[in-house]
């Protein structure tokens, strides 16, 4: 058994990294008091993107599940929130956890089918599955079909009566869930299941022969990642107050851009997703006036990274300097 003292010793080492992270988190949480509406939007967009990057990285970088269909779960989470609020009259506070469960359940249904496919076939399979979900939602008249739907005023008011407070609360929901995702992923990698996941990442053959259940490791990862993606989808669209199939199940927004960010930052390293998300947003904001050029720059950068540093920019830093922002290493 681990004593409390040991746990504290292992996890609560106060160092510069933790301190900086804590200050950053505090600054973000306090953002509604010092930032304008545009900044709040940008912050929550950034943090939810960061969370999606962390999740996709767990999936592709660690579990070896190269999914191109994560938009299925983001969209389902968003729609679950809207349907539960508009048609079942639930409060958004209750609908968000249910959206998480719904996305996880969909993943649990998809997994046994998709896991029969390997590598590129799995990627295509996840994409097809996501497109199917999109088509299903676009065909339901009660949900506005292809045009989508708005969140009813009553549900919006259920969050908070005043507009200002409401926007702050939604901001805290988005950032809270995003930070929880990041911390959750970190906690996962430091747990026993995380050790299995890193072993599977590095060598599947050896992992299987040393007693790791690869199917189960992948299944659990897939379902958890989908569930969190669904939760993020719910709060992302709660902030937008409107949802449509093309926005909810956007391949570009919820998967392709995320893949770019993770590949550039460093696949298979937690820090890689963080660095990649930061780079992506910097590029996007710096080149906002140039239109789609940032996409060309982003694409070229991704290709360069894939050619010259397959572990991404963080991989370069890690090999060169041995740095680690979120250490998961077990010390004897």
């Amino acid at each position: 058994m681990t004593t409390l003292a040991e746990t504290t010793k292992r996890y609560a080492r106060p160092d510069a990294r933790a301190l900086v992270a804590l200050l950053l988190v505090l600054a973000v949480v306090a953002a509604p008091f010092w930032a304008g509406r545009a900044e709040l939007r940008l912050f929550s967009e950034f943090l939810s993107f960061l969370a999606l990057a962390v999740l996709w990285n767990l999936l592709a970088g660690y579990a070896g599940l190269l999914s191109v269909g994560q938009q299925a779960f983001v969209g389902l989470g968003g729609y679950a929130l809207f349907v539960l609020c508009a048609h079942a009259g639930l409060s958004p506070y209750l609908a968000i956890p249910l959206a998480i469960v719904a996305a996880g359940a969909l993943a649990a249904v998809f997994a046994p089918l998709l896991f029969r496919l390997d590598g590129a076939y799995f990627a295509v399979g996840t994409w097809v599955a996501a497109e199917t979900v999109l088509l299903v939602f676009a065909m339901i008249p009660a949900l506005g079909g292809g045009a989508g739907m708005s969140l009813p005023a009553a549900s919006v008011k259920a969050i908070a009566a005043g507009k200002e407070l409401r926007e702050s609360i939604i901001f805290w929901l988005v950032t809270g869930l995003s930070l929880a995702t990041l911390l959750g992923a970190y906690g996962l990698l430091r747990s026993r299941a995380g050790l299995a996941l890193m072993a599977v990442r590095d060598n599947r053959l050896a992992a299987a022969s040393l007693g790791i259940d690869i199917w189960r490791t992948r299944f659990v990862t897939y379902v958890i990642v989908a569930a969190m993606s669904g939760g993020l989808g719910a709060v992302i669209f709660l902030q937008k107050l409107r949802i449509s199939p093309s926005a909810a199940f956007s391949l570009n927004d919820w998967t392709v851009m995320v893949i770019f960010a993770v590949v550039i930052g460093g696949i298979g390293r937690l820090e890689g997703a963080v660095i990649g998300a930061i780079l992506y947003f910097l590029l996007r904001e710096m080149m906002a006036d140039l239109g789609a050029i940032y996409l060309i720059v982003l694409g070229s950068l991704a290709i360069l990274v894939m050619l010259f540093s397959r572990k991404g920019l963080w991989g370069l830093v890690e090999t060169r300097f041995g740095w680690s922002l979120m250490p998961t290493e077990r010390k004897p």
Binding site: M1, T2, R192, L195, A196, M198, A199, R201, D202, N203, L205, A206, A207, L210, G211, I212, G268, E329, R330, K331, P332
Partner: peptide, 26 residues
């Protein structure tokens, strides 16, 4: 040899001891 290249030598052995016996890391 099929090492877990991204893990340390200690972690490699730890994976083996943990999962082959189904016990805790500790």
């Amino acid at each position: 040899p099929q090492p877990f290249s991204g893990l340390t030598v200690f972690e490699n052995a730890l994976v083996a001891a943990t999962f082959a016996q189904g016990i805790s890391e500790q």
